[in-house]
């Protein structure tokens, strides 16, 4: 009989209010920002998705038209250019700024004199807004009073540097400017990574007889691989959002050669009153981002599982 007594469930003593408050506070503090992010990210994404399937024009309306907006979007040459530009720009911009950032970080990591000065100089472009960057570089690219005029003034009268004036090269002007703006940022992250590497690792490699380049290739850079991913992911979302840089630098021109999806979406939604098609374009931007981020997060999950198995 006595064993039965032991199994009678006893209600746990009520938690004192102070303790309950303690567990509630983090939830209460986080709730508003969580709610806001949820609304802005998921609710508006779903709303945009719905709009992209509707016949909205100047104002959102809810007549369902299926994939008509997408079809008309992809039939438009300007959109095709914009979407191609997005991939062209993202590719060159990310690879370029990471390569230059890494190179700068490695050079600065060689214990150069006046390191803080170099660091500040290279990081400064990030402190300048895209609008200012775009405006200043548009002057530099301007054949009449930019670099071309300056070099010709020095005596090389045949010198030609007019990337933004030619519809085939204008996109590269945007890429170069983007790289200039953000390679300092990549450098800062890479430098932090390089500095976090255990100095004993480098000494061990030195004793093992590895050359400097081999030490970087085989020991240091693999160790900071997660930083490459972090930099790439941050740069990708910069690239896909690109709007103000192009708006200030080339205004999408010459012609439509440097149109970007973000500009196109803005144009459709707020200039031409084609909200439905604009929403479709916005969804295509989301798709572009997903192409990169979904495999990335799947890979993270896969790696974590793999580590769980081996560890």
């Amino acid at each position: 009989m006595s064993t039965h007594d032991l199994t009678v469930p006893v209600a746990p003593p009520a938690a004192p209010w102070r303790q309950r408050l303690g567990t509630m506070v983090p939830i209460l503090v986080l709730a508003p920002s969580l709610a806001v992010s949820f609304i802005y990210v998921f609710v508006f994404t779903l709303w945009t998705l719905y709009l992209s399937l509707s016949n909205s024009s100047l104002m959102p309306t809810y007549g369902f038209v299926g994939l008509d907006n997408y079809a008309s979007l992809w039939a438009n040459r300007r959109w095709n250019i914009a979407y191609t530009n997005l991939f062209l720009f993202s590719g060159f911009y990310i690879v370029g700024s990471m390569a230059i950032g890494l190179l700068l970080a490695i050079l600065i990591d060689q214990r150069v004199r006046g390191e803080a000065v170099w660091r500040t100089i290279f990081l400064y472009p990030l402190a300048v807004s895209f609008i200012v960057t775009g405006t200043v570089w548009s002057w530099l690219y301007n054949p009449v009073d930019g670099i071309q005029a300056f070099v010709r003034g020095l005596g090389w009268t045949d010198f030609s540097f007019a990337l933004t004036a030619n519809r085939n090269t204008a996109i590269y002007a945007v890429i170069i400017t983007g790289i200039w703006q953000s390679s300092g940022f990549a450098m800062a992250l890479f430098l932090a990574g390089l500095r976090s590497v255990d100095p004993d690792l480098i000494k061990a490699a030195q004793i093992d007889g590895a050359s400097v380049s081999r030490t970087y290739r085989k020991v240091i850079l693999p160790t900071i691989a997660p930083i490459f991913l972090a930099v790439a992911v941050i740069q990708i979302q910069f690239a896909i959002k690109t709007f103000d840089l192009v708006a200030a630098l080339t205004r999408g021109g010459p012609g439509v050669s440097t149109t970007f999806p973000a500009i196109y979406v803005y144009d459709l939604m707020f200039q031409r009153g084609q909200i439905g098609e604009g929403a479709a374009a916005a969804m295509m931007m989301l798709a572009a981002l997903a192409v990169v981020l979904v495999p990335y997060s799947l890979w993270i999950v896969w790696r974590r599982r793999a580590e769980g198995r081996n560890g």
Binding site: D198, D200, L201, A204, D208, G209, P222
Partner: peptide, 20 residues
């Protein structure tokens, strides 16, 4: 150079290459 001194060293942190 360290590599030519014909020495080997064991470090306090072991300094094993983490990615290998």
């Amino acid at each position: 150079q360290p590599k030519d001194r014909d020495i080997a060293m064991v470090f306090q942190s072991y300094a094993l290459y983490p990615t290998m």
